[in-house]
Amino acid sequence: RQTSKEALLEFWTQAERKTGVKINYKERVEDITRSGDGFIVKTNRGTYPTRSVLLAIGRRGTPRKLGVPGEEMSKVVYRLIDPEQYKGQHVLVVGGGDSALEAAASIAETDSGGGVVLSYRGAEFDRAKARNRDRVQAAAKTGRLQVMMKSNVKKVEAESVSIEHEGEMKQVRNDAIIVSAGGVLPSEFLKRVGISVETKYGTV
């Protein structure tokens, strides 16, 4: 059974309200050290003594960045929150997985009026689900979405972005960029806090 992001977010929001669990948003764990029979958890906001630590950080880790000039601009983000906020804007989505295809299709389906470009370095969307590939194909047929396969972002500027597409450099008008290129595994963090990591066939 497929669940939309909106439905999943609503489920967790209700769970937070019902249980009363305290969640510290925008707080990043930086280190975990032993202290007697417990641990000291250090974050970007402070430290917490605790008897036990449960790690539920997933395998995605921190968002993978493009590593190009101009990426530090505020118009570059690493996840889609609300497609409606991009109405009328020229949007670039980078990536070839389900998150990238969902973001590009969702924005295109709002009839933004600006134009949506999906850039992917690969030759085909072999990692994405069929339903997301179908959504992208449908949006492309209407002209609301431009798909650039075998392409790489080279530079981000205030009103445009430079993309190398099949050996040719192109300047594309742009107001916002959503990078959905996966994440960097938290292997170093896990090793630092004393958790052994074993990699087999490219997976952890």
Rank of each mutant, 00 (worst) to 15 (best):
K150S: 10
A139V: 00
V172S: 01
K191F: 07
G143L: 04
G38M: 00
L80F: 05
K170Q: 07
N152G: 04
D82R: 11
G115A: 04
S99V: 07
W12R: 08
H90W: 10
M148G: 01
G88F: 05
D31Q: 09
L101H: 01
L66C: 07
P49T: 04
L55A: 09
T203A: 14
V117Y: 05
R60A: 12
G96F: 06
A15V: 08
E159C: 05
R121A: 06
M148N: 05
R17A: 15
K5Y: 05
G202L: 00
A15M: 05
L190A: 13
R17D: 08
R60H: 13
E10I: 08
Y86F: 08
R192L: 06
D134H: 11
K18Q: 09
K22A: 13
V204G: 12
Q14V: 03
R45K: 10
R127M: 07
G167H: 05
G58S: 01
R1Y: 11
R192K: 15
V153Y: 02
K26G: 01
A123S: 15
V91Y: 09
S119Y: 05
V53Y: 15
R127P: 11
M148I: 00
S112W: 06
G115D: 01
I163S: 02
V117H: 02
A108P: 03
V197H: 02
S119G: 06
P49K: 05
L92M: 15
V53W: 15
D126K: 14
D175L: 02
N132C: 10
G46L: 04
V94Y: 11
E6P: 08
S160T: 08
E168T: 08
E157K: 06
G61P: 07
A130D: 13
G58P: 02
Q2I: 07
A7E: 14
Y201A: 15
D175W: 05
S52T: 11
V161G: 02
T3Q: 10
R60S: 11
V41Y: 07
K191P: 09
T199R: 14
G143D: 13
R131F: 15
S74P: 05
A128Q: 03
S4L: 08
L101Q: 04
T110I: 04
S180Q: 15
Y48Q: 12
R192A: 12
K150R: 14
V193C: 02
M169I: 09
T33E: 12
V93Y: 04
G167C: 13
V94H: 13
G115S: 01
A140Q: 05
V94R: 12
R64Q: 04
Y25P: 00
Y120Q: 02
I57C: 14
E72L: 03
T3H: 10
T3K: 11
R135H: 03
Y78Q: 06
G97P: 03
P49Y: 10
A7Y: 07
A128Y: 04
S180A: 15
R45N: 08
K200A: 07
T142W: 07
R51L: 10
A123G: 06
G61C: 06
D98M: 04
V29W: 00
G97C: 05
L190Q: 09
R79W: 09
K200Y: 09
G97S: 06
E16C: 09
N44P: 01
L190V: 05
K42G: 01
G38P: 04
S99Y: 01
P69Q: 01
E102A: 08
